[in-house]
Simulated assay, not measured.
Amino acid sequence: MIHHAALIPWLDPNVIIHSAGPWALLVVCGIIFAETGLLVGFLLPGDTLLVISGLLTHTSFVFGLDIWWVGLAIAVGAFLGGEVGYLIGHKFGPSVFERKETGLFSMENVRRTNKFFERFGALAVILARFVPIVRTFAPVAAGVGHMNYKKYSLYNAIGALIWGAGLTYFGFVLGYIPPVADFVQKYIDLILLGAVVVTLVPTLYHYIQSTRKARKAAIARGAEAALPTDAEVALDPSVFQRKPSEL
Rank of each mutant, 00 (worst) to 15 (best):
S153G: 00
L39R: 06
G159E: 06
V96D: 03
G89F: 06
R221G: 11
F63S: 04
L7V: 15
A226V: 09
V233Q: 01
A6F: 10
L127C: 10
A75E: 04
I208H: 15
A124G: 12
A128G: 11
F116C: 02
A218W: 06
A225V: 01
V70H: 06
E118V: 08
T36N: 05
G194W: 13
F116L: 09
T57K: 03
A181D: 14
I133K: 03
A73K: 00
K216W: 11
G143T: 11
L44M: 13
Q209A: 15
E232N: 00
D12F: 06
A157K: 00
E108G: 12
G103M: 04
A142N: 03
T59R: 01
V62C: 07
V62R: 00
L56I: 02
Y176N: 12
N156T: 00
W68K: 09
G85W: 08
P244V: 03
P139G: 12
A78T: 05
I16V: 10
L154D: 00
L104D: 07
K186P: 01
F120G: 04
A195D: 09
V144Y: 02
V201Y: 07
T203S: 15
I188D: 11
W163I: 00
G93K: 04
R129V: 00
S153V: 05
T48C: 02
V76A: 10
L200Y: 11
G21C: 05
P179K: 09
A220R: 12
V144A: 03
I8F: 13
Y205S: 12
I219R: 12
G77F: 04
R135N: 07
F137E: 02
T199V: 06
G64E: 14
V70Y: 11
V144K: 05
G30F: 14
G175W: 06
I88R: 11
S60V: 09
Y86F: 15
T36H: 05
D66Y: 08
G41L: 08
F120E: 09
I8E: 13
A24K: 06
D189Q: 12
G89S: 08
V201H: 03
P94I: 09
V239D: 04
M107P: 02
W69G: 11
A141L: 09
V51F: 10
V144S: 03
Y205T: 12
G41S: 11
K115Q: 15
S245G: 01
P94H: 07
F240Y: 15
I8Y: 13
I52P: 00
A24D: 05
P94Y: 07
G93V: 05
K91H: 09
L161C: 03
A195P: 01
A181F: 00
G89H: 06
W10N: 14
R135P: 02
G103Y: 01
A223V: 08
Q241E: 14
S153A: 13
Y149W: 15
Q241K: 14
Q241L: 08
F42A: 10
I219A: 14
Q185W: 11
P132L: 11
P139V: 07
L49Y: 07
P94T: 07
V180S: 07
L174G: 04
N156M: 02
E98P: 01
E98I: 14
D182W: 15
L38I: 13
A220G: 08
G82Y: 12
P132H: 14
G46L: 06
Q241T: 08
N109A: 10
G81N: 10
M1F: 15
L65N: 10
W68R: 12
L190A: 14
V197W: 07
V62H: 05
S210W: 07
L87Y: 15
C29D: 08
G175H: 04
Y176G: 06
P45F: 13
L104E: 00
